[in-house]
Simulated scan of single mutants.
Amino acid sequence: MDSKWAMASPGCFALPEEQFQCTVCRQVFTDPVTTPCGHNFCRACLETAWAGAGAAEACRCPACDKPFTHRPEMSVNAAFKELADAFRRMASAPPARSAEPGEAACDVCAAAAASPRVGALKSCLVCLTSYCEAHLEPHRRVATLMAHRLIAPAADLQARLCREHDRLLEMFCRDEREPVCRFCTETRHRGHRAVAVEDESRERKVEKAGGDGGGGDSAS
């Protein structure tokens, strides 16, 4: 990918880096405001440029030199500020790590045809999507996404879905010895002993560790 282009949002929209730079300070926008002629500037940069003009005096756009009879009242462009802030965070993030063969890759980067494959940091069991460091950021910031369940990166999330109910296999039926979804526990597995998959996995690891330890003691 050309270094002059960057993914500006979690949706992986590619935009030129210049789109996020103030034409006055040549830095990524801070509190961007939009003039009536449609140009964006850092709020502080525009206030400095117009510092000599009073509220009732004419001033000009620093980009196109369009004159304004009266100094426009500027307010921060909230939507564009969010994009600029996201771009700043992604630009300062450490370089993406390439996925090893057989390792889960970021599905968002893959959809954007990123090459090489970018290694995933986490997989979301609600979105059924794996994310790299940059694309995981919304799950750490947006309230609704923060409630999603994240796990270690998994290469095949579809395999974690119940074929009957198309729901996450988040329970384990100890009677039938198989993973099930919550709908299964209310239908054909009703009344069975069901626990969270994580609990079953944890207990198996403890049992295995105990068995290995016991074998070592008897051998000594």
Rank of each mutant, 00 (worst) to 15 (best):
H189N: 08
C22N: 04
L136G: 10
A99Y: 12
H39G: 15
E47W: 04
A155Q: 15
R60P: 03
D2F: 06
P138T: 03
H139R: 06
K81F: 11
S115G: 04
S75V: 07
R167A: 08
L145E: 08
A147V: 07
L128N: 02
N77Q: 02
S123R: 08
A93H: 07
P95M: 01
A194G: 07
E18S: 15
C106S: 06
M1A: 13
G52A: 12
A114N: 00
D65P: 00
T69S: 12
T144L: 14
A44P: 00
V126N: 12
T23G: 05
M90G: 06
C106N: 06
P32G: 12
K205N: 10
E164H: 09
R204H: 11
P138D: 02
A56N: 12
C181V: 01
R149M: 07
A53T: 09
A99E: 10
P32H: 09
Q19N: 15
L150S: 06
A110K: 12
R26Y: 05
D156M: 12
K205F: 12
S92Q: 08
L150W: 01
C132H: 01
C64I: 03
S220R: 13
Q158L: 11
G213M: 07
I151C: 15
E18V: 10
C61P: 08
S123M: 06
H135M: 09
R190E: 15
L15S: 09
V126Q: 10
R141T: 14
A53R: 08
C181F: 02
M171H: 01
T69I: 05
F13W: 10
R202E: 04
L157H: 08
D175T: 06
R160C: 15
W5K: 14
P94H: 05
R204P: 06
A91V: 05
A110V: 01
A194R: 01
T144G: 14
L161C: 12
K122T: 11
L150H: 04
R88C: 11
A91D: 13
A79M: 08
K208Q: 13
L121E: 09
L169V: 03
P32T: 04
C22M: 04
L15Y: 14
C162K: 04
F80K: 06
C127Q: 04
Q27G: 05
D199C: 00
D217E: 05
R182M: 09
E200I: 00
E73C: 10
S130L: 07
E100M: 09
R163P: 05
Q27H: 02
W5P: 13
D212A: 11
L157R: 10
D65G: 01
P94A: 10
L83S: 06
M146V: 05
H165T: 01
V142Q: 15
G102H: 12
K66N: 10
M171V: 00
D65C: 03
V118L: 00
A99Q: 07
R163T: 04
E82I: 03
V180E: 01
A209C: 14
T23Y: 02
R188S: 15
G216F: 14
E18K: 04
R188M: 14
R174C: 00
Q19V: 03
D85F: 04
A147D: 13
Q21V: 03
G210K: 08
E73I: 03
M74E: 03
R43Q: 13
N77L: 02
A105C: 04
A219M: 10
F80V: 03
